[in-house]
Design a protein around this nucleic acid. Sequence first.
RNA 1: GGAGAGGUGGCAGAGUGGCCGAAUGCGCUGCCUUGCUAAGGCAGUGAGCCUUUACGGGUUCCGAGGGUUCGAAUCCCUCCCUCUCCGCCA
Length: 426
Amino acid sequence: MLDLKFIVQNPDAVKAGALKKHIVCDVDRILELDVERRELVGSVDAARSAAKAAGKTIAQAPPEERAALAAKQGESKAALKAMEARQKEVQEELDRLLLLVPNVPAAEVPEGGTDEENVELRKVGEPRQFDFAPRSHSELGEAHHWIDVVRGARLAGSRNYVLLGDMSLLEHAVMRFAFDSMVARGFTPLSVPTLVRSETMVGTGYFPGGEDQAYKCDERDDLCLVGTAEVPVTALYQDEILDGADLPMKFVAQSTCYRREAGTYGKDTKGLYRVHQFQKVEQVVLDVADEARSLAHHEAILGNSEAILQALELPYRVVNVCGGDLGQPQIQKFDIETWMPSRDSYGETHSASRFHDFQARRLNLRYRDAEGKVRHVHTLNNTVAASTRMLIALLENHQNSDGTVAIPEALQSYLGGRKSIGRPIE
RNA sequence: GGAGAGGUGGCAGAGUGGCCGAAUGCGCUGCCUUGCUAAGGCAGUGAGCCUUUACGGGUUCCGAGGGUUCGAAUCCCUCCCUCUCCGCCA
């Protein structure tokens, strides 16, 4: 969330930001509530101060005078209670509204309402020209008995799948390659819970608003399945004050990711593109509150993922995500879209986000700088590799005319040195 | 799941109704002293909010939320979490 002081001092910038993101929030009501809140804090504090002083007088008064003094004290207490009740109401409404105010997007974020208005920054690699009719990953998966969506659905409903044989091995190979690459770049490997408290979902900015997209345990447990390791990793130090000397912290974690995909019926129904569960390696950076350093990290984590795609010999493009396609918490986001022949287009595979202190404020995640001042950290994250979408790209881009699939050199050592998988299809 | 214990400042750990935002120790910071691979002395050392040009002042926070009381870290209720033993189990 944004700093209340910032909102009060820059209401127009906040409103303009929300407009650019096509998000509705009531900034004026917040300003109103803040005025009332301050008045109440002033009078409540003064009343409490008086009550405290009176209490001390009573303690020191001779026993025979105490009853009278205490009775008098009881009267002013009723007024204090009323003020406190109102203060609580105001604070609660304010807190609720503050959670809905979006982060202000950077000036470099393009105007636009949907992903169609994202701006392409660069293309890397050429989409392959096939001299045969290429198969979709679904066709390849079925022909080789690598992907079983029928039994996946029987086990767990639609948008579920089973990977078999070499496809399961390939999934592990990609994940491990991605993970190892990040460790080699100095990221600290982490294994984290994928079932977290709602509070953690709020802290990272997924709630309120994203409840429909998350699987939630029943009322016995206040826990949700995460849609990404970003959640537990970013929240790792929530409610703590870190030593600024320990920053930046860079983490890489693999996790299973769960997504309800509510409201996407009929969309991307074939194959592995939109599924309820997949594996993902994610990178997260925590650093001091410094714009320049945040920007540098943003470039770096984008570059880390591009290096993975280049090693996997996959064509991709980078887009600057427009305001309307930006989430509530981001300052700016770059998506990487990888070429997918069956879609005859680039499909989103990575999302590199910069948040400034938006998540850190919600998470109460702070650090002490060199001067001893306590500040909120800046957070960033990016996909390193998401299993299913990487499998789509690998199968479809590296397929041969006989239906076998070439394995990029970077992955061969993870597959026992094999250069291809699959037998020729009849 | 059963039985028990407990949640206090960076850590350890006192504190069972007013003198407690909280002893003491450790850690950390600064100054001083001695001079030899270290020790000693003194001082300081939580966060939030309101207010103030500033110095400062006020207030809240002792797991969370309610309650009793003129007054609560201390008493009562609810919840959360941790630990120990037993049971079950990957």
